[in-house]
Design a protein around this nucleic acid. Structure first.
Lengths: 192, 192
DNA sequence: GAAGGATATTCTACGGCGTAGAAATGGGTT
DNA sequence: AACCCATTTCTACGCCGTAGAATATCCTTC
């Protein structure tokens, strides 16, 4: 329903897809915003419960991956969460509850660290997934690489060496970021 | 110029503020998009050069803080970077160049880790700053807390305990996330 | 000064957006 | 057949970005 990029969902388009006058939709939802809020909640329903038996590191990774899957499948999701505080509904609260529980009980982090970790993970996925919300689905082209391509060879040597060293065999950047985050949480955890 | 929230910049509003017909602007900029691209580049000009004498951990922290300062001062910035790949111009390349250089030379990370760290830091700040791009400037209200407030007391105990433990004395969530990231990068770095 | 040309600005208009309010349609009960 | 109410449609408003024609302004050259 929310496929096709951020500006893809239009009352008029939605109504057309339903074979109906645009204003007919307003009998069921008072505004476009309320439709989006309902959609966001419905999408978060699919958020999987954590595997309590797994080590907390894996639970954290699974949480981030699950959020990413949802964000990629439904471009509107992150955009709505970002732009409308009330988009966080019951289903989203369940998702964050599970992460807080994992970080507190299993990882044994202090409250401040838990709050920081939750914000970090959510903001990371949001920042990662948001470019996809505009281009529609799929993978976004790396803006830095394309910007570099339009510059003379001798400029920005560090970045040029970097992409030369990676040379196509670039691993999943998202997983790399996850590795760093989990490593940081481990360092924070075993301060006891 | 780009104050007042995301939808704040309108050709008509901009022209009105200039005391001019909306179409007059099109003599200098071919489209709204080109205006935004120019603004983004101008804003990134203010990105500070790294302190090469400082330890790399501090350089990384300074980079993230500098990006956050820019993002908060100019709500349009992150939105443009997120939604338009070509918004990454010369000035932005300089900013990322300095980070890549720090992570490669000073921190001694492997290429894959460097790429992951850059994406992680940029996406984190983007995700962190984006809610501010809609509400205009200032601090956004925490959506999870407000959503929790509308729920019966006995639900979501982990999150309730968490905010009770923090109890107003919540430290800067952004700095906490930075701590975790830097700790993770350190763990990655001293694998030698 | 007058005339011409380039530069700068304004006017009008189009299609699209979200949606308010009135009007028309439809089905179900009495 | 008459009523009501849920549902749908029609029309319209003010906003958006911007295309194209018309106008105004100023600077150069005689």
């Amino acid at each position: 329903m929310d496929g096709g990029g951020s500006p893809g969902l239009t009352m008029r388009r939605l109504a057309a897809e339903l074979g109906v006058d645009p204003m007919a939709v307003y009998h069921y939802y008072g505004s476009k915003r309320s439709i989006i809020l309902a959609l966001v909640d419905a999408v978060f329903e699919a958020f999987p419960a954590p595997d309590a038996a797994a080590p907390w590191q894996q639970q954290v990774r699974a949480w981030a991956r699950a959020y990413r899957v949802l964000a990629r499948a439904h471009p509107l999701l992150v955009l709505a969460v970002i732009s409308d505080p009330e988009a966080v509904g019951l289903a989203a609260l369940h998702a964050s509850e599970s992460l807080v529980d994992t970080l507190t009980s299993s990882a044994g982090l202090e409250p401040g660290d838990v709050a920081g970790a939750v914000a970090l993970l959510a903001d990371y996925v949001n920042g990662y997934a948001l470019p996809l919300a505009w281009t529609g689905e799929g993978v976004a082209t790396d803006p830095i690489s394309t910007a570099l391509a339009g510059q003379p060879q001798e400029r920005f040597p560090a970045q040029r060496r970097l992409i030369a060293a990676l040379d196509g065999a670039a691993p999943d950047a998202f997983e790399l970021g996850l590795d760093v985050i989990v490593a940081g949480l481990e360092a924070r955890s075993r301060r006891a």
